[in-house]
């Protein structure tokens, strides 16, 4: 089995984002980048599937700036076998990204593509579905699992999804419950938060990752027209929240909830 995982380099969600004076992009100087946390879950799941099957190959792919290679290397340090980096330093939209990924998939011919359900920078969550459409493949979105992240299976790093022959069986998170589905391979799988706890890139893993192959492609190699169809017009920070108040006791709280907040 061959697994393709996407790794998007995103601004560290822990840091404060600053909007540039142009109002349509954010300040990137001295900004720390990390692997999109949902993609880390996808990498982890691919590694578990490979290791549980006793073989296979995990290929990590990223599209973005030259220095996004550090995030690609992080996936390799976690244990992915090799990388593909579509190097580009221009605005992208889900249409372009899915077109580029479809081209990479055409070349790599994976049995399963694993992606985060969304990237935490722009939260669009469109690429998985678009890629499935372009390829004509089935897609399982918001993939989770029945057992908890404190379970013995999780501690033993067992995969949360299962593959039998050409059938992928997964559990999806839906409103108020879980849904079990099967999808015929080749397929796309997008990961939700509770699928697994991703491993840390280890120091020996980081050393090994230095020697792993990363194939570089240009955006022009994988898309016909690099003009984005979606344009960002304006970015605004959320309105500042007013400081809360402290109340003396529960009766005062109830009164205020009734008369001021009017929620009771």
């Amino acid at each position: 089995m061959k697994y393709l995982v996407t790794v998007k380099s995103v601004e560290d969600p822990e840091i404060k984002i600053k909007i540039k004076p142009d109002g349509t992009s954010i300040e990137t100087d001295q900004v720390k980048y990390v692997v999109n946390p949902f993609d880390e879950i996808a990498v982890e799941e691919a590694l578990r599937l490979r290791d549980a099957a006793g073989g296979g190959e995990v290929v990590a792919v990223t599209i973005g700036r030259k220095d996004a290679q550090q995030q690609l290397r992080t996936a390799l340090a976690m244990g992915a076998d090799r990388g593909v980096h579509v190097v580009c330093d221009q605005p992208l939209d889900p249409t372009l990204v899915s077109e580029a990924l479809a081209k990479v998939v055409e070349g790599e011919k994976p049995d399963l593509v694993l992606m985060g359900k969304q990237a935490v920078d722009d939260d669009q969550g469109q690429v998985g579905a678009m890629l499935a459409e372009r390829l004509g493949w089935g897609q399982a979105s918001f993939v989770s699992k029945e057992t908890s992240l404190e379970s013995e299976d999780e501690k033993a790093k067992k995969p949360g999804v299962s593959i039998a022959g050409t059938t992928l069986q997964v559990v999806r998170e839906v409103d108020g419950g879980m849904e079990s589905v099967t999808v015929t391979l080749p397929a796309i799988l997008t990961t939700d938060l509770r699928l697994n706890v991703p491993r840390y890139a280890s120091l020996p893993g980081i050393m090994k990752a230095k020697k792993k192959e990363v194939k570089e492609l240009k955006l022009a190699d994988v898309v016909a027209d690099p003009t984005p169809k979606v344009k960002i017009l304006k970015l605004e920070p959320p309105a500042q929240r007013k400081a809360g108040i402290k109340v003396a006791d529960v009766p005062t709280l109830v009164t205020k909830l009734k008369t001021e907040a009017k929620v009771l």
């Binding site: 840091i15 404060k16 600053k18 300040e27 001295q30 990390v34 290679q69 550090q70 290397r73 992080t74 340090a77 840390y200 890139a201 280890s202 120091l203 980081i206 050393m207 990752a209 230095k210």
Partner: peptide, 26 residues
């Protein structure tokens, strides 16, 4: 714009990818 973090002198720029990755994972 206030300066966040504590790498005031951009020492990060002097580090290799491997060095940054080792720091970040720890």
């Amino acid at each position: 714009m206030t300066f966040e973090g504590w790498d005031f002198c951009r020492i990060d720029d002097e580090l290799s990818e491997e060095e940054r990755m080792a720091r970040d994972t720890t």
